[in-house]
């Protein structure tokens, strides 16, 4: 069943709505859990579109296995998704920096408040993001250490390669996940792929995790696949490699994953001068879970994140 969460009228004969698809068991067996899948807060992140579709398709194929509620919110920033723009188009405002919003606020804040209110009461919220167009991310779950105890069981069950527990000091308070957790609703953030693309294999990997978590919560009674053991990494175990000078990054890797100390990850070149200005090498053995995708870089741009080792 498709339900409207909030709607506003646009200036020229059009309404803008955020909607959800509500899935519930045929037979109401009394108490049951509720999972909410949210995506499309950033308009350039599209993997969630396939994930939402596939969850609905699988549940519709076997409705008899559904023993709880699943709410799917495919486009929290519908104009952004439509226009392939990360932020809310008219305001150039990052929607994931305005939660919990305000019922009396302008469009973005009003939608944020409506979503926050609708998600309240969920037993788990999974906020599905892709990366942006600049870096590629291995499928991963991000957990704020402040809420680790509450959500770690779900995070580990999501079939991702990495669960990244990050420091509270770096948490952004106005994100959806932070807001829901502070309201007492367990929430995790899924990251994957790259902006403006759908990676079907990675989406299917994440879907295995979602159905596993649904089974753990008692929402799904059908068969599920085994999930992989996630590598749990923490702030001090992640080295962040940034470029030292502006140029063009050329990757020497065929993908993400294991890396050896000293291995060449890529080079930053100056095309007009025909020379390499920086060799980017792995500082230690580890696991590359973020890698530069967009080649043009300025000094300070992120090249890679590598799990492994211990850092200050």
């Amino acid at each position: 069943m498709i339900k409207e969460i909030a709607s506003i009228e646009l200036p020229v004969h059009e309404n803008l709505s955020i909607r959800k698809t509500h899935l519930a068991p045929f037979v109401d067996g009394g108490e049951h859990k509720r999972l909410s899948l949210v995506t499309g807060i950033h308009g350039d992140e599209l993997d969630g579109q396939y994930i939402v579709y596939e969850v609905i398709r699988r549940v519709q194929e076997h409705p008899e296995y559904l023993a709880g509620e699943v709410d799917l919110y495919p486009a929290i920033n519908p104009l952004g998704v439509d226009m392939a723009i990360r932020a809310i188009p008219m305001f150039d405002l990052d929607m994931n920096r305005i939660f919990p919003g305000s019922e009396k606020g302008v469009m973005a804040e009003y939608f944020a408040a409506a979503l926050t209110g609708d998600l309240y009461g969920s037993d788990l919220v999974i906020d599905i993001h892709s990366s942006n167009i600049y870096v590629q991310e291995l499928p991963q779950i991000r957990v704020n250490e402040q809420f680790e105890e509450r959500v770690m069981e779900y995070a580990r069950g999501m079939n991702t390669d990495i669960v990244w527990v990050y420091s509270s000091a770096n948490a952004l308070e106005a994100t959806l996940a932070y807001t829901m957790n502070t309201l007492g609703v367990p929430a995790i953030v899924a990251e994957m792929g790259v902006g403006h693309r759908i990676n079907r294999a990675e989406c299917n990997q994440m879907l295995t995790g979602i159905f596993h978590v649904m089974q753990t919560m008692g929402i799904w009674t059908g068969p599920v696949e085994e999930v992989r053991t996630s590598l749990v990494t923490r702030e001090g175990e992640v080295s962040v490699i940034r470029c030292e000078n502006s140029g063009v990054f050329v990757s020497h890797r065929s993908g993400l994953g294991a890396v050896s100390q000293g291995e060449l990850i890529g080079e930053i070149i100056l095309p007009m001068e025909g020379r390499v200005i920086q060799e980017v090498r792995a500082p230690h053995d580890g696991f590359v879970f973020t890698l530069r995708e967009h080649p043009v870089v300025y000094a300070g741009d992120l090249i890679a994140r590598i799990h492994g080792g211990m850092y200050e």
């Binding site: 506003i8 009228e9 646009l10 200036p11 020229v12 803008l16 008219m90 302008v106 469009m107």
Partner: peptide, 8 residues
Amino acid sequence: PLIMENTE
């Protein structure tokens, strides 16, 4: 000159 609903 264009306003949407809820505009301040």
